[in-house]
């Protein structure tokens, strides 16, 4: 097992940035097309992604496999940690604890979100064009709406705070001043990205998304 946990941890950390952080930003931009361009804008943006060359391999190596490794190994890291914020109520210790909690929530959320969207496309229940309608059904269901808000906030926190930790773990932000400034930057990123995701989620509630897919809507209401 020599060298094993160091390398696994480094791979875990690297995959969190490339590709997963890039993906979350990309996902935010795609969703935000729903705010800026309405149903057509969202549809175009989904179609643009699916028109990328070798999209199967992009998804496999850019999302599926990294997500699987980062998620499963991340659960193991969470299991390896004690949570002692009761005794040490420092900001960074809270961030440490929240990083683990948000990671577990994000894991559950991502599995569920994939089931509701990507998996349904895969088995042929909906098409890419109808995803706006699926999201309309989800965002108008109060339980899912709240679950998605929690999931999105957790995922974006995990991303922002994870980026802060990545910069420390690879020795880029070394001194306390660099780490403090980095924490301000990532806090701002957290606020902006969360706001943009939630605005998109709000936009999906609009009736204009309902028309795009009545079949998809029927399906989303069933779940």
């Amino acid at each position: 097992m020599k060298g094993n946990s160091y390398l696994s941890r480094k791979i875990h950390s690297l995959l969190g940035v490339i590709p997963l952080s890039l993906f979350i930003v990309e996902h935010m931009l795609t969703n935000f097309a729903a705010v800026e361009g309405g149903p057509q804008g969202f549809k175009d943006s989904v179609n643009f992604l699916n028109g990328l060359p070798l999209v199967f391999f992009l998804e496999l190596f850019g999302i599926w496999l990294p997500l699987l490794f980062h998620g499963v190994y991340g659960l193991y890291i969470a299991y390896q940690s004690n949570l002692n914020t009761g005794q040490y109520q420092y900001g960074r210790n809270w961030a440490f604890t929240l990083q683990r909690i948000s990671g577990v929530i994000t894991f559950i959320f991502v599995v569920w979100h994939l089931y509701q969207t990507r998996y349904q496309v895969m088995v042929g229940n909906v098409t890419h064009d109808e995803l706006g309608g699926v999201m309309n059904g989800i965002a108008n269901n109060p339980v899912f709406f709240i679950f998605y808000i929690i999931g999105v906030v957790s995922a974006v926190f995990h991303f922002s705070n994870g980026m802060w930790a990545f910069l420390v773990s690879w020795g880029i932000t070394v001194g306390p001043r660099a780490q403090r400034i980095s924490s301000y930057i990532w806090m701002a990123v957290f606020v902006i990205v969360t706001a943009m995701f939630l605005m998109s989620l709000g936009a999906f509630r609009g009736d204009e998304f309902k028309e795009t897919a009545s079949a998809a809507l029927a399906w989303a209401n069933l779940v």
């Binding site: 390896q80 960074r92 210790n93 961030a95 604890t97």
Partner: peptide, 19 residues
């Protein structure tokens, strides 16, 4: 430090420097 039981377990809670 780059083996099992090395530096990789640090989770940046930063309680150490406070204590």
């Amino acid at each position: 430090l780059m083996e099992d039981g090395g530096i990789e377990g640090c989770g940046n809670s930063q309680n150490c420097v406070r204590s």
